[in-house]
């Protein structure tokens, strides 16, 4: 089993994702440079956070043109698990692999803090061992994490069960106060129709060890690895 951690110019959470998979979960991880045209031999893909191309033009807009994104599309089409975190989520949106777009936080400020998420569905490879309704403490760190989509798209993704995580308070209630960036429907993460592509603004790779303040992020990676193991059988 081998997980690809993509590296674009300006990726900066690549080492953290690699550390979480390789050293915390003891699985095989490998950096893949954005000019690679193939993901053959990989069983899962992580598009890490960062400021690809300095966030110039729009977040994720220039990274979507990298050769590796063609390979990600093929990998996703074939059902492989893909997770885009923070800037990785933004790249997935710009590439059209996930619906909607990101705009600047309502506060107009970068925000780095722990938030609480409510798991809305266990249908994805990343949440299959996290029962619906589970609360997770995971940090956010972004300037443009205010999720936007038109009404019709929102209706569609809500109807299809594509909303995977919502921001909530400590008691699991989805309230405006618990929404750090103004996202529609307090959406923190969504998946594609098939469920194998997940995009989320919070950073699970930053909280896989208790000394980092929470180890809840580990559960997403464990889910992904168990999904891969099962499908290989």
């Amino acid at each position: 089993m081998k997980i690809a951690v993509l590296v674009f110019p300006g990726s900066n959470c690549d080492h953290d994702a690699y550390h979480a998979i390789k050293h915390v979960l003891a699985a095989d991880a490998q950096f893949v440079w954005h000019k690679e045209g193939s993901l053959d031999g990989f069983d899962g893909v992580v598009i890490p956070g960062g400021f690809t191309y300095g966030d110039y033009l729009r977040t994720g807009a220039l990274a979507k043109l990298s050769p590796v994104m063609g390979a990600v599309r093929r990998f996703a089409d074939s059902g492989g698990p893909v997770i885009g975190i923070c800037n990785g989520f933004q790249i997935l949106l710009e590439s059209g692999l996930l619906p909607g777009a990101m705009i600047v936080n309502e506060s107009l400020k970068f925000i780095c803090d722990y938030v609480t998420l409510r798991t809305e569905t266990a249908r994805t490879p990343f949440t299959r061992s996290i029962p619906e309704g589970t609360r997770l403490r995971i940090p956010v760190a972004h300037y443009q994490g205010n999720y936007f989509a038109d009404d019709e798209t929102i209706r569609r993704i809500e109807g299809n069960g594509q909303v995977v995580f919502r921001y909530c308070d400590a008691g699991g209630n989805v309230t405006p106060e618990a929404n750090p960036n103004g996202s529609i429907g307090s959406i923190a993460g969504i998946c594609n129709e098939k469920g194998n592509v997940l995009g989320m603004m919070p950073h699970p790779e930053r909280c896989t060890e208790p000394e980092m303040g929470s180890a809840d992020g580990r559960r997403l990676f464990e889910s992904m690895l168990s999904h891969i193991k099962e499908n290989a059988r």
Binding site: I103, V104, N105, E106, S107, L108, N146, F148, D150, G182
Partner: peptide, 11 residues
Amino acid sequence: KGVLDPQGKAI
């Protein structure tokens, strides 16, 4: 139209 513009609002 219809997309929130926090920056515009702040200005």
